[in-house]
Amino acid sequence: MQRTRVFPGNYKSLAEISSFIEQSIKEAGLDTRDVYAVKLAVDEACCNIIDHAYGGEHKGEMEISVQVETDCLKIELRDQGKPFNPADVPPPQFNATLEELEEHGAGYYLMKKLMDSVHYEYSPQTGNRMILKKRIKN
């Protein structure tokens, strides 16, 4: 079964998106740790859409589809903002001193660590499309 909803691209949507994800993945029977991981990965993905693809709040919408399959959870996020190149995202600064730490890249890195796969594609016709997958352990 697939559930799809469209949310306004602003930070106020984030709590509602989190509830939508929690409701939609209930039937997958994930443990609380994996449910948290999926909610966090989706939150980071949405913030990247708002901050980077749209360049701020209230610039466009985010379409989120959740599909629970037998052994896999698939979440697709679409937006009409600017494309990005995942290779340009800097890795987190492990071993940096506190003063050296700078805020960038953590969201995308977290998504990759929290999910089993993160796939991104762009086409001028359909815009940005990100697919997050999490294996369902039985």
Binding site: L14, S18, Y36, K39, L40, D43, E44, C47, L98, E99, L101, E103, A106, G107, L110
Partner: peptide
């Protein structure tokens, strides 16, 4: 119940000010 990376950066920023 939930902290995104944005939240961590707020705490890191405060930690920098405190430890300076």
């Amino acid at each position: 119940s939930f902290v995104s990376s944005k939240g961590w950066w707020v705490l890191i920023d405060t930690q920098k000010k405190c430890k300076r």
